[in-house]
Design a protein around this nucleic acid. Structure first.
Ligand SMILES: [Mn+2]
Ligand SMILES: [Mn+2]
Ligand SMILES: [Mn+2]
Ligand SMILES: [Mn+2]
Lengths: 219, 219
DNA sequence: ATTATTATTTAGACAAACTTAAATAATTTC
DNA sequence: GAAATTATTTAAGTTTGTCTAAATAATAAT
């Protein structure tokens, strides 16, 4: 099946929003792809025709097994390119998403398998997300929670769930990256902000918004 | 100016066919881009509008200074990606053109300058073609001629002017690559075929067709 | 200098991926 | 459970890059 760039972007976005089982709504997809709901409805019809999604009017969208396979391929390409940009070309993690968004559409099994070899077959990308292998399987990430609902006191950062350069730049400024160890000092009920301390850094208070997007596991 | 993939391909093809000064014809461009003359005429109007080419009905097409600059950027991206694929991912020279044809459209100054650094700022690509620098300048290649009109007897291969995998596969089979030294044994008037000898290889006879596409300079 | 051939352009149509505006369905709210 | 609100779809139109067929210009042949 030969998909257009737009189709691949839709499939990937559906995969991202699907998270488990629930159907993806037209509006959510339009928002994610910065397009209009009417465009999503059009595309849904096409993708259904190609058997990549199941879709019934007003019922939302879910990937078919075929669609899921496609999504995992695109995700694999995306995350491998991100690794390349960070590991080999010294980009920082907030710069790579945009570029990978384009590079992911160069479709070549051989290119991607060689790129993966060249990078040492990495299993997580610069944002802590798992990279599917050539068969679409990925190592199940070790259990992790978002920082705002962690109960342990001493934690290690395992991933960030928002890729926006705004968040990533903030984390850079606070010297927080993957693998950073931190300690929860206080939890303020009023606005759910959290005071944390990174070794050799002054304690800082982060908003609930930020905390929700930092994934951690107990040390 | 933000160009589409199609526009970039047109500009690059015009650059390739222009060779010096002469205007590029509608048919030649259609053939090069595997499209129809009517499509070329349409696109010519658009590119003229954007001031990338000069074009008058029935008079053919030439790049404007602006268009030339654009072409050199695309060529730079193309050739750097080819280097990457060959040097880092171990592709062979007949496989890379197609892939570079897609990779070249990821537009990012930063990406390309870092890629160039990563590769050691190469000045020729895997086919012996010069790589423009960030300002569009390229080192003028040392004087070279096609093998069919070389007058010296002992020669070194400097480039191939046809990128088709058919030719490149043929050269692979005969152990001819960039830098290969060869000797002209005979020149057969009948069909302009040439007998050549590569060190440690049996002498072989190559057609005029092939000879025209091998660039050489005297040893 | 006509005529034939070839090259190029125009006209009209189409598919993909969008958009806005209007219509309809689903969901909340009171 | 009717009314209001929100979500989704349909209808109609746009842009980009194609195409085929027909018209016209340029060039070559006689
Ligand atoms: Mn993308
Ligand atoms: Mn990522
Ligand atoms: Mn291209
Ligand atoms: Mn090349």
């Amino acid at each position: 099946m030969n998909l257009s760039v737009a189709e691949e972007n839709y499939i990937k976005a559906i995969y991202k929003l699907q998270e488990g089982e629930q159907a993806v709504t037209t509006n959510a997809l339009a928002y994610e792809l910065e397009t209009k709901p009417a465009s999503v409805t059009d595309m849904a019809k096409k993708l259904k025709e190609k058997k990549l999604i199941s879709y019934e009017k007003y019922q939302g969208i879910t990937l078919s097994p075929e669609g899921r396979k496609t999504a995992l391929q695109v995700v694999r390409r995306h995350r491998l390119w991100e690794c390349f940009l960070v590991d080999k070309l010294s980009f920082s993690w907030e710069e790579v998403h945009e570029l990978a968004e384009e590079l992911e559409h160069v479709r070549s099994e051989k290119l991607i398998s060689r790129l993966s070899d060249f990078l040492g077959n990495p299993v997580i990308d610069p944002h802590g997300d798992p990279i599917p292998d050539a068969n679409g399987r990925m190592t199940k990430p070790r259990p992790q929670t978002s920082l705002d609902q962690a109960n342990a006191k001493r934690l290690v950062v395992t991933a960030v769930s928002d890729q926006s350069s705004a968040l990533l730049a903030f984390l850079n400024a606070k010297s927080i990256k993957l693998g950073t160890q931190l300690e929860i000092i206080a939890h303020y009920e009023f606005d759910n902000s959290i005071e944390i301390k990174v070794k050799n850094q002054p304690a800082i208070t982060i908003s609930e918004q930020v905390a929700k997007n930092i994934m951690v596991r107990p040390l």
